[in-house]
Amino acid sequence: MSFIANIKSMSYLKGHAAQIAEDLERNGKPFVITRNGEVSMVIEGIKQFQEKEALIAALRIIALGEKDRLQETGISVAESRARLLAARRRA
């Protein structure tokens, strides 16, 4: 993991929240927070969170398309292009 160097305790988080926020904004590497020696949470910056959420959404769309392809319930590229062209003409 690329963020292995950013392992901090819960007490560090409590006392250094502002510093953690600055570090996240500056370098984007998430922090692993431990409680009683066990990993408790991961803190990441909003930019990284949004990028991850966008990637997950894209992967879901790809997975749905693959499911349709395997079930042969999707539409062809030609049909898709024709629908897009028709929609653009209506707009």
Rank of each mutant, 00 (worst) to 15 (best):
I33S: 00
I61V: 01
V77E: 15
F49R: 10
L59Q: 14
E79S: 12
I75V: 00
V42I: 08
V42M: 07
R81H: 11
K8R: 14
I75K: 08
V42L: 13
A91M: 11
Q48N: 03
P30S: 02
L70R: 12
P30R: 02
Q48F: 03
K47I: 00
G28R: 05
A86K: 15
N6S: 11
Q71R: 07
D23T: 01
M1S: 14
V77A: 07
F3E: 11
L84T: 09
A86P: 12
I7K: 10
I20W: 15
R90I: 02
G74S: 04
R81Q: 08
K29W: 02
A78E: 15
I43G: 04
Y12P: 05
S2P: 08
H16Q: 06
V42G: 07
E44D: 06
T34M: 14
I61P: 08
G28Q: 06
R83A: 02
N6Y: 04
I61S: 07
V77H: 14
A63F: 08
G74F: 03
G28H: 05
A78L: 15
I43P: 01
M10G: 06
R83V: 05
I62L: 12
A58N: 13
I46V: 11
L85G: 05
G65L: 07
K47M: 08
T73W: 04
G28S: 01
R60G: 00
A54S: 08
S80V: 00
L85S: 09
I33G: 05
A86Y: 04
M1W: 14
L84C: 08
R69G: 03
E25Q: 14
M41F: 13
V32S: 14
I62T: 00
N27G: 08
I62E: 11
N27V: 01
H16S: 06
S9A: 01
G37N: 04
R35T: 03
L24I: 02
K8L: 05
I46R: 10
K14T: 00
F3I: 06
